[in-house]
């Protein structure tokens, strides 16, 4: 197996130092992600139940990356529900 470089070891050690217990799987985080996003986008206080999402994001770069992309997509798409909803 390829040896770990010093930079790789630094990266791993940094992640280890910041590791805390995580109660969510990636799929469970995904199920809560839209609620978490709306709290941010609408300026609402997040309920305690969503704290686990923040913890998961801090330890799962994949999910955190998707969350940032989600916020960007929603902001780019515009507030569809107000502007162009077929029921308006």
């Amino acid at each position: 197996m390829k040896a770990m470089t010093y930079e790789e070891a630094r990266k791993l050690l940094g992640a280890v130092a910041q590791t805390v217990p995580d109660s969510l799987t990636c799929d469970n985080c995904f199920r809560l992600m839209s609620e978490y996003a709306d709290a941010e986008l609408l300026g609402r206080e997040r309920p305690e139940t969503l704290t686990a999402v923040r913890i998961h994001f801090s330890q799962c770069p994949c999910c955190a990356y998707e969350y940032v992309a989600l916020l960007e997509a929603i902001r780019a798409a515009g507030d569809f529900d107000v502007i162009t909803s077929p029921l308006a």
Partner: peptide
């Protein structure tokens, strides 16, 4: 628990 459009976009 979220807006439908947020859920769909996710």
């Amino acid at each position: 628990e979220s807006r439908f459009t947020t859920w769909a976009m996710s």
